[in-house]
Design a protein around this nucleic acid. Structure first.
Length: 950
RNA sequence: GCAGGGGUGGCGGAGUUUGGUCAAACGCGGCAGACUCAAGAUCUGCUGGCCAUAGGCCUGCGUGAGUUCAAAUCUCUCCCCCUGCACCA
């Protein structure tokens, strides 16, 4: 058993003492790796190991490839979470206490966590310890927190630049809003943590006949306006007539909606009235000029939209049902005929399944047809109507084509945009926001409404020039894995205005409105650059960190002397900061999770482009997947979050790292599983035990199997290097760890026994283990008699001269021979009950090789035979016969690299091994000399097998 | 709805970029054997299905079609699953 704790402690101390991970400016090429910083009040769990560990693997790998590597880490504390955390502790929230207990936070510490700065201090200390215990090759001196005043100075400077470039704009913005607390509400502020989903709708104005007022109808489907036959209101709701905004017009809407809509537009109620008053009126359809009545709709809710609904009985089951019911009750004063505006092709939808049976009249009213499909009618309960509605909307939106003049053949979404645009342009409609998943309740109990906030500050990621540069630069960036490129491109296209100033929370004051705080993702877009100087400016008073300083350090504006004067910062320090930035920030890799592609990572690229000179723009982004715990997503509710410290204590840092970091390729989710970790531990132990047994091996001349081992090693290094370059760690480590163990076992089974070969093999393997299993790597490296740090060694070079295709082919031949023989033996044993006593392996003659190679080259039987004409060793007749057989599968014929003698020697050498595998005697024979009747079946690389049974 | 990703053995997942020599690397689980008083651990072998029975054949990569001498791989269609949709870290 390996004592992971012991060797981890030993090497962590040795690395610290040697300070080998402290990044200093030097002549070597620099490389900087950063991973998304954790929120400061979050105890580290095994999920964190993924991004940090992947970054560390890259850092260690790059170091071995000759780079001077810097891997810093800091902490995020901006926004409301830390405050909320403190508040919950203060109120003795048992949930959070329980959660902290899971992470072994002692009660006396929890008690003190009512103060944000204490929370930060505690977790920074704890997390720092864990970084070290995880074996991360970090430079701890550069750690900082997003609310450090020195860092704030940099953020302020950054926003000055954004403002200078015109990237900060002010405007209106719809947000979820609690009318009681007068505050924006996000997901965390609602009951049951639901996100208030805000959707834009269109409200269409229907002029009231012979009156200077409009009925205002909200709708998702403005394109169906051509099919409107009437207006519905709720006959028992109070309504109002009012002004909305300042267009001077008067509108009828429900009283309830007026209450809610006032948060997104100025609403002036002129008069309250009952629905009965509205039912006397008629309206004009703005697109057709038709005169349409206002009717009572049983399903209309006063507090949804405007409480006024336009009725499209042909395409809306609810509308159809409401009209039918009125008709049956004799309450329709005039006949109302549904108007169809779009059609679904036959054979394209569920509705068409019954289309054959449906009467043509039914198909004229799709809403009715959909009810029929569901074996119901206009009297259906609301849930059924709802279901039919969803079905119809879906199918029509998917496959429907407009049949209205001027829009013929258009798809519904297409027509929707067009109609909407036209209505808005003509002033026949206005835009309106609704809470799609209403009702949503604030934690305080009040219902959330949509508020259009005035004077909201945004970062304008929609700015065309900025977007174009970002899009263009993204094309040059290395993205790992490259398949995230689509997502990044989509993100750049999609990202638009981002609200940037918040009323509450920790963080940097927004320079253009100091009553606000910069929102927490927006203050962390270029913070990685601060690592290059954070340890240098730690003790500089924040007020000295004026824009001049950052302009010079990060943009090379001005000169060190003047900056030193204007800021009163020591000249040499200013100069050193600039040098440090220039040195470290050219070649960088950023690591994060896929959930951040659509915000942080995209903003990261945007902001670098805005702030820095081109040489310092991002070079590489690596996106890693999540960690599942025994097949399940980790979550508080499942109670299966595994603290990082537990994983390390239980299994050791290296097995945990191998499991989580190298357990899946970059973007795939990896699984934390006890079984997998055990398997990893076994293999690490196998390597270590092999080293312990080295002295029992021999020092004689190398044998064929040694060449095989060297050849395998060479191939392994080439492959692993290729995979490491693209951070395909899973692929890399199946080769480095799993395959290596398999190969060593095979080597010993084949009677391999060379001390030097095994030592060379394991030395290289152990160095390649270094990026992911640094401690074990270091330990075995020293067990092998080395005195240097594996962490500081060169990545093994692929020595091409070791590559030996012949020996590898011969070993494959041995394997396939064993496999074939096994099959036959099993078969015969089952059939006759006899055991195999002797196996004759008959190796094919050389003339067959010549023929096969000729066929492989020419891919033509005639030409191949011609090319063998002059060869006296080839029997023409036999060759022609064999060629005929092979002709059927000409495409599969491959070049053969081994001669008969080589094949013979290879198998002969493995005879003992084969004999042991099959538990029978083995004799290897040349085809020409064999007495076996099966001898002629022998083919190159596929010897004939003749088995005797007894 | 929009956007991004995905559907391959009992399971996790390779293979898709560059069509063939490859279906299933590697791992887990399962079965058999070795070791053991026994269990566990470890080692060895087998492990998609069906039919054969001297090393073979057929069938299989969500559905349905197409291109091709040849498709898990390319094109189209449909179905299903996951993630995100913002001012929230």
């Amino acid at each position: 058993m390996i004592d992971y704790k012991e060797i981890e402690a030993k090497w962590q101390k040795a690395w610290d003492d040697a300070k080998i991970f402290e990044g200093e400016v030097s002549d070597k090429p620099a490389y900087m790796v950063t991973a998304a910083w954790p929120y400061v009040n979050t105890p580290l769990h095994i999920g964190h190991l993924r991004a940090f560990g992947t970054a560390d693997a890259l850092a260690r790998y790059k170091r071995m490839r000759g780079f001077n590597v810097l891997y810093p880490m800091g902490f995020h504390a901006t926004g409301t979470p830390v405050l909320a955390f403190a508040k919950r502790i203060k109120s003795n929230d048992q949930d959070i206490v329980d959660e902290l207990h899971v992470f072994h936070v002692p009660d006396e510490e929890i008690k003190k966590m009512t103060d944000p700065s204490y929370i930060a201090a505690y977790f920074i200390k704890e997390s720092g310890q864990l970084y070290r215990r995880s074996g991360f090759s970090m430079d701890p001196r550069r750690s900082f927190v997003s609310i450090d005043p020195t860092f704030s100075k940099m953020v302020e400077w950054q926003f000055g630049i954004l403002d200078g470039k015109g990237f900060l704009t002010k405007g209106k913005h719809p947000v979820g809003w609690c009318p009681n607390e007068n505050n924006a509400v996000g997901m965390h502020d609602t009951k049951h943590d639901v996100e208030p989903e805000i959707e834009q709708e269109v409200a269409i104005k229907f002029k009231v006949d012979s009156e200077d007022a409009f009925m205002l109808c909200t709708t998702y489907r403005p394109e169906t306006i051509f099919g409107v036959t009437n207006i519905f209101v709720n006959s028992s709701e109070p309504y109002v007539i009012c002004n909305i905004g300042d267009d001077g017009k008067r509108y009828y809407i429900s009283k309830a909606s007026a209450q809610v809509l006032k948060y997104q537009a100025k609403i002036e109620v002129i008069e309250e009235l009952s629905a009965q008053k509205l039912l006397e009126k008629n309206c004009i359809n703005p697109v057709s000029g038709n005169r349409i009545p206002v009717l009572p709709g049983f399903f209309v809710k006063g507090d949804v939209g405007t409480g006024v609904v336009m009725s499209v009985p042909a395409h809306a089951p609810f509308d159809y049902a409401a009209l039918e019911r009125l008709r049956k009750e004799g309450r329709l004063k005039q006949e109302i005929k549904p108007i169809k505006v779009l059609e679904v092709q036959i054979g394209r939808s569920l509705s068409d399944v019954s289309a054959g049976e449906a009467k043509p009249s039914q198909m004229d009213v799709p809403a009715f047809a959909y009810l029929e499909i569901l074996h119901t009618n206009a009297d259906a309960i609301d849930d059924m109507l709802e279901f039919a509605t969803k079905l119809e909307y879906r199918e029509e939106s998917h496959w429907g084509k407009m049949i209205v003049k001027g829009y013929e053949g258009m798809s519904e979404p297409e027509a929707r945009e067009k109609v909407k645009g036209e209505l808005l342009e003509k002033g026949d409609a206005m835009e309106m926001y609704v809470l799609q998943n209403a009702p949503v309740y604030c934690r305080c109990g009040y219902e959330v409404v949509v508020k259009v906030v005035e004077d909201q500050w945004f970062i304008d990621y929609g700015n065309e020039g900025w977007k174009d540069s970002t899009r263009a630069f993204l094309k040059q960036m290395r993205l790992l894995p490259d398949k995230t490129r689509n997502a990044f491109e989509a993100a750049v296209d999609w990202i638009d205005l981002r609200a940037v100033a918040r009323a509450q929370g920790l963080g940097t004051k927004f320079p253009l409105d100091r009553t606000k705080i910069i929102e927490s993702l927006s203050d962390s877009t270029i913070y990685m650059s601060f690592y290059t100087i954070s340890h240098l400016v730690k003790d500089v008073p924040p007020e000295k960190l004026k824009p001049d300083f950052f302009d010079f350090v990060f943009r090379g504006v001005g000169d060190a002397e003047k900056v030193a004067q204007s800021t009163d910062i020591d000249y040499s320090l200013v100069k050193k900061c600039r040098e440090s930035f220039e040195y470290w920030y050219r070649d960088t890799s950023r690591h994060s999770g896929p959930d951040l592609i659509y915000n942080h990572l995209t903003m990261y690229v945007y902001n670098h482009i805005a702030v820095f000179d081109r040489a310092y723009w991002p070079k590489q982004i690596a996106v890693n997947g999540f960690v599942l715990s025994e097949g399940e997503k980790m979550s508080k509710s499942l109670g299966n979050i595994i603290p990082l410290v537990d994983a390390i204590n239980k299994y050791g840092a290296d097995p945990s790292r191998l499991n989580i970091i190298a357990g899946a390729d970059l973007l795939n989710d990896s699984e934390y599983s006890e079984k997998a970790i055990r398997g990893i531990q076994e293999r690490l132990e196998y390597l270590m035990n092999t080293v312990l047994g080295l002295d029992k091996l021999e020092s004689g001349e190398l044998k064929r199997i040694d060449y095989w081992l060297y050849s395998k090693l060479s191939g392994k290094i080439e492959l692993a290097t290729k995979y490491m370059d693209t951070l395909e760690l899973r692929s890399a480590y199946t080769g480095i760890l799993y395959d290596s163990v398999l190969e060593l076992r095979r080597y010993f089974a084949r009677k391999g026994s060379s001390e030097i070969a095994v030592k060379d093999f394991i030395s290289a393997v152990v160095l390649m283990l270094q990026p992911v299993a640094p401690h074990v790597s270091e330990e075995i490296w020293h067990m092998l008699g080395n005195y240097t740090f594996a962490s500081a060694e060169k990545w093994p070079a692929d020595n091409r001269e070791m590559r030996n295709e012949k020996v590898e082919a011969e070993e494959e031949l041995v394997d396939s021979t064993v496999e074939d023989a096994k099959q036959v033996i099993a078969l015969m044993q089952k059939k006759s009950g006899k055991k195999a006593s002797k196996l004759h392996i008959i190796v094919a003659s050389d003339w067959k090789r010549k023929l096969v190679n000729a066929l492989a080259k020419e891919k033509d039987v005639g030409k191949a035979l011609d090319s063998l004409q002059g060869d006296t060793k080839v029997d023409k007749e036999q060759a022609a016969k064999l060629a005929g057989v092979l002709a059927k599968r000409l495409n599969e014929v491959e070049l053969v690299k081994t001669t008969q003698l080589e094949e013979f020697d290879g198998v002969e050498e493995a005879a003992d091994y084969i004999s042991k595998q099959l538990e029978c005697d083995v004799s290897v024979e040349m085809e020409e000399k064999s007495k076996s009747q099966r001898a002629s079946r022998a083919m190159p690389m596929k010897p004939s097998l003749d088995i005797e049974f007894a």
